[in-house]
Write a protein that binds this DNA or RNA. Structure first.
Length: 856
RNA sequence: GCCGAUGUGGCGAAAUGGUAAACGCAGCAGACUUAAAAUCUGCCGGAGAGCAAUCUCCUUGCCGGUUCGAGUCCGGCCAUCGGCACCA
């Protein structure tokens, strides 16, 4: 082949060869406890990638970044004597597949299968050490059977208020609770609340899927409308989802993101009587200490009380305002947020703390979905209330004394209570407590905690998703029997959205009809469902009796730490959604005794985005997308893997550089030529410089430094510096006249997690000539070398001499030299003396083995 | 507006409070070659002095502090990127 001439080493021949050999020998199959070849004496290591959505575009260079990192860790841990679980699978339900199917007229199952095949082939060509026997696919009935089963666990559970843990609803039945009471407490429940309806997509969306009032997928307009939907009671876990972040090895920024998303705030409920009505309104406030400063009240326009209390003369204006607000999309609502708007209802509330009559307004800056949908307005000490009061000329009253020199109007920080009766003179913190106690004593309120997190809208009007294992009869819902799982979607020709909130499954009339009197639930689950528990399925992917066997779950997820997966690597885009949902499901399963740890993921690392060569985000329209297949074809899989790791720290955003790929490719070619040389005919043969000799001391030292640094850097995920060290060793070997086979053999083992193909090939070639210097089987199966601390020790060390902290001279001294000795040498140095300029010595600092600093 | 991350050569970057710029890219020079590519060797932050080896001063976004010594620790500011955003 003519192209051979251009290849600095024949990666295109040996990369596929070793991929076949690994597969043929099932080199990366991981036995489970109970399997014949399972070794219980080894510790376990579960290293997990966020599984991909198999899109039609195929793999992007961003995918292999995280996958290579976990592959290096997995291979390294295997070599270090661990039982390593490193699986891969497909998050294959979802909107893009369905939209593509609608466009092309192909069934989404077909396109999904094709896409998965493409992805799998691409991943295999990168030489990842996945145990493919554990591959999962969320659209496989054998998989979603258990997704549905877990949904039924949620459906059949409630959270016990005392313990805060999920329990089976059968306990409530035993207590004699009514059907309605039980339904009101289920973790999966039906709600008739306003939801995010996206007409373009023909489905409702979770709050988390709506960005700036538009759908996250596609960017289509989203409107609010009340619909009957399935909800998951994630709010019951809000506090635990915050508290239990503490035991996890996650980036602090991600934990903060989750905490902020859940949005806990402490405050109080205060109940106001409405003047001239036998009605009350409860508000939530984080500043009960400012209750004396409440000069008006605001209800959300959607608040149910509005129509009851509005006076006849205000009714017209109020209704116009309500209609305007309703018709606005969330996007318009935020865009128009700059200026405060609102309308007076004509009604008054009685401030319980001083009996004052305060006007009740409605305004769109009060949201129905947060707190109670009603606020007491304290314009003196709240920015928004202050602004509103300015616009409508409402009174502003001071109840907090700010520090000296600070204006009290609009002062929102902590200060001292004034004009507040029994609170006067108290600090804000004390006043909050006093007021909460007072409210409770008088029976008009109490201290409480509120969360921004809402319950999770869990149903979608789509075809390509898990059907709910639910049937409806006589207006009420019930679970199908476990024996009827999986509930498989019907075969349909026409699965397009109906254009109305009616789900497409409604068109499969035979399927919908469950019995004479019962009908199936028509909604399907969102894409998040399958990804909430896939890491558990990997532990025991073929199990048909249980979602995961107890033994496999305890082994792979166990280990004493709160989280089961030892390392989870993926992008920041899942910082709140997927990671919050999965933690929630895991905690429910934990409470019910199905899993053994309270958290799913012990250590989380986010890989940084890879930008295009132009420093811009990669996108088709910019034309800066790099296709990994092209890189593999030109430089090989090892070069791609190595480059992605050499670019910079894993967690950092960094731009792609083809020149950089060439650089690591050249490095691998240098490694190749350490072992191989071309003969007269241009054939690769073992290098004559490779000999069975003892290495020089200097080379031994570099080798052992490399073993040590690479091992430590892999644990720290500092792959770029590990690769630098291997380059240093390679440079040293290149420059050696004679290359000891023993050093090369050990180096190949260190290299193998990073560049497994070239390591296997060179090891096999080395074995042909120096059998005892090379790994006997696969390098991938060999033991990680142990470094010898003695080899790192030097006889002599260079000491830096400073005068007043500035470098002035250096000297080589024996390693164990006494402090006084080194000090003497330093002071004797001509250059040190020159810079001392004859001034008296104030102080001398000696850092053994490092430096002497003379202060004059 | 709030929260978070990041600022070091021409570029990607490295540096337990102890020689700033390891390793790589690009560039320059040399060797090999008829030539080119590939490969190998050397140089490669800035200013100044010297024929030269070499030497001096400056340099980690900016200002200040702690320290014998700060890229690293502390305080203040600026810029870029990311997230949240009328959450009472």
């Amino acid at each position: 082949m003519s192209s051979d001439q251009r290849r600095p080493f024949p990666f295109d021949e040996f990369e596929p060869k070793w991929q076949d050999q690994w597969e043929g020998a099932q080199a990366f199959r991981t036995p489970n406890p109970g399997d014949a070849d399972f070794d219980a004496s080894k510790p376990k290591y579960y290293v997990l990638d966020m599984f991909p959505y198999p899109s039609g575009q195929g793999l992007h260079v961003g995918h292999p970044e995280g996958y290579t990192a976990t592959d290096i860790i997995g291979r390294f841990k295997k070599m270090s004597g661990f039982n390593v679980l490193h699986p891969m699978g497909w998050d294959a339900f979802g909107l893009p597949a369905e939209q593509y199917a609608i466009k092309t007229g192909q069934h989404p199952r077909k396109t999904t299968e094709k896409n998965i095949e493409g992805f799998r082939g691409q991943l295999k060509r990168l030489g990842f050490a996945y145990d493919w026997s554990r591959e999962v696919n969320t659209t496989d009935p054998g998989y979603f059977k258990w997704t549905q089963w877990i949904f039924l666990k949620l459906y059949n559970s409630y959270v016990d208020e005392v313990t805060g843990k999920a329990r089976p609803v059968s306990e409530l039945e035993a207590k004699g609770m009514s059907r309605e009471e039980i339904d009101a407490r289920r973790l999966a429940y039906v709600s008739e609340a306003p939801v995010n309806w996206c007409p373009e997509l023909g489905t409702v969306l979770a709050n988390e899927e709506v960005v700036d009032g538009k759908s996250e997928v596609g960017g289509f307009a989203v409107e609010r409308r009340p619909m009957r939907q399935w909800m998951l009671r994630i709010t019951a876990y809000a506090q635990r989802l915050i508290d239990e972040l503490d035991g996890l090895d996650w980036p602090e920024s991600i934990r903060l993101l989750q905490r902020n998303w859940i949005g806990r705030s402490e405050g109080a409920h205060v109940t106001f009587k409405i003047a001239d009505f036998e009605r009350e309104v409860t508000v939530f406030t984080t500043r009960p200490d400012t209750l004396f400063g409440a000069t008006y009240m605001v209800l959300a326009p959607e608040h149910t009380l509005v129509s009851e209390i509005t006076t006849a003369e205000q009714r017209g204006e109020v209704e116009v305002y309500q209609r305007t607000v309703m018709s606005k999309s969330d996007l318009e609502r935020t865009e128009l947020a700059k200026e405060k708007s609102g309308v007076f209802t004509g009604a008054y509330a009685i401030n319980p703390v001083n009996g004052e009559r305060i006007p009740i307004w409605i305004a769109d800056y009060v949201l129905m979905g947060y707190g109670t949908g009603a606020i007491m307005a304290v314009p003196g000490h709240d920015e928004r209330d202050f602004e509103f009061a300015q616009v409508f000329g409402l009174p502003v009253k001071q109840v907090v004394q700010p520090p000296e020199g600070v204006k009290w109007q609009g002062f929102t920080d902590d200060g001292v209570a004034v004009n507040s009766g029994f609170l006067d003179g108290l600090s804000t913190a004390e006043a909050k407590v006093q007021m909460a106690d007072w409210l409770e004593e008088k029976g008009v309120g109490r201290g409480t905690v509120n969360y921004k997190l809402r319950d999770w809208l869990f149903s979608r009007q789509r075809y390509w998703g898990e059907p709910f294992p639910i049937v409806w009869e006589d207006g009420s819902h019930r679970a199908v029997a476990d024996s009827e799982l999986p509930v498989v979607p019907p075969e349909m020709e026409d699965f397009k959205p109906t254009g109305t909130p009616e789900p497409p499954l409604s068109k499969a009339t035979d399927w919908v009809r469950y019995s004479e009197t019962a009908r199936r639930e028509l909604n399907t689950m969102p894409q998040w469902a399958g990804s909430c528990w896939y890491y558990l399925r990997y532990c025991d992917a073929a199990n048909t009796e249980r979602f995961v066997s107890e033994e496999a779950e305890r082994y792979w997820m166990g280990g004493g730490k709160p989280g089961g997966v030892d390392l989870y690597v993926g992008g920041t885009e899942h910082a709140v959604l997927h990671l919050l949902y999965a933690r929630f499901w895991h905690k429910v399963l934990f409470d019910l005794g199905f899993v053994s740890t309270p958290e799913p993921f012990q250590r989380l690392v986010n890989q940084g985005l890879i930008m295009g060569e132009d420093g811009q985000k990669m996108s088709k329209s910019r034309g800066n997308v790099v296709n990994p297949d092209d890189v593999v074809a030109e430089y090989g899989a090892d070069s791609l893997r190595l480059y992605e790791m050499f670019m910079g720290p894993l967690e950092q955003v960094k731009p792609w550089s083809m020149k950089g790929v060439e650089g690591v490719h050249r490095f691998l070619a240098r490694v190749w030529r350490v072992v191989m040389e071309q003969d007269q005919a241009g054939e690769w043969v073992i290098s004559s410089q490779l000999q069975d000799v003892a290495p020089e001391k200097k080379l031994t030292k570099v080798l052992h430094e490399t073993i040590k640094k690479c091992g430590e850097d892999i644990e720290k995920l500092s792959f770029n510096t590990a690769i630098s060290q291997m380059m240093i060793l390679t440079n040293a070997l290149t420059q050696s006249e004679v290359r000891p086979a023993s050093v090369v053999g050990i180096f190949l083992r260190v290299l193998s997690p990073f560049a497994p193909h070239v390591a296997e090939e060179l090891n096999a070639l080395l074995r042909g000539v120096f059998p005892e210097k090379a790994a006997a089987g696969f390098v991938a199966d060999s033991a990680w070398p142990v470094f010898d601390p003695a080899a790192l020790v030097e006889d002599e060390v260079e000491i830096v001499f400073q005068v007043n902290g500035k470098l002035r001279d250096k000297a080589v001294v024996p390693v164990g030299a006494a402090k006084e000795e080194v000090e003497k040498i330093a002071l004797a140095s001509a250059r040190v003396q020159e810079f001392m300029e004859g001034k008296p010595v104030k102080k001398i600092i000696v850092v053994p083995g490092k430096l002497v600093n003379v202060v004059v």
